[in-house]
Amino acid sequence: MEYVDGNAMAGTLGELFGVEMTIAVGVCAACGNTGEVAALHVYNRAPGAVLRCPTCESVLMRVVRGPDRTWLDLSGLRTLQIPV
């Protein structure tokens, strides 16, 4: 399946976190790869978005938006450094 990259999540994540999240740096819990959210592989041709590690393809983040809430799963990340 075709993916895009984390740049495409800038609006959705920016609205949630209130800061520019594509330059946040995540560490993959599976392989330890460290990099910006912008470089993650994003599968978003579905009601939600799945963000995968560009090195090992593990699922790092999942974001599903409903009409009055957003569901965010970060369990694939060891850490996420957010710019403030």
Binding site: G6, N7, A10, G11, G14, E15, E20, T22, I23, E36, V37, A38, A39, P83
Partner: peptide, 9 residues
């Protein structure tokens, strides 16, 4: 419209 967004590219 929502933005501008993006800080990497």
């Amino acid at each position: 419209l929502r933005g501008p967004v993006g800080g990497y590219f």
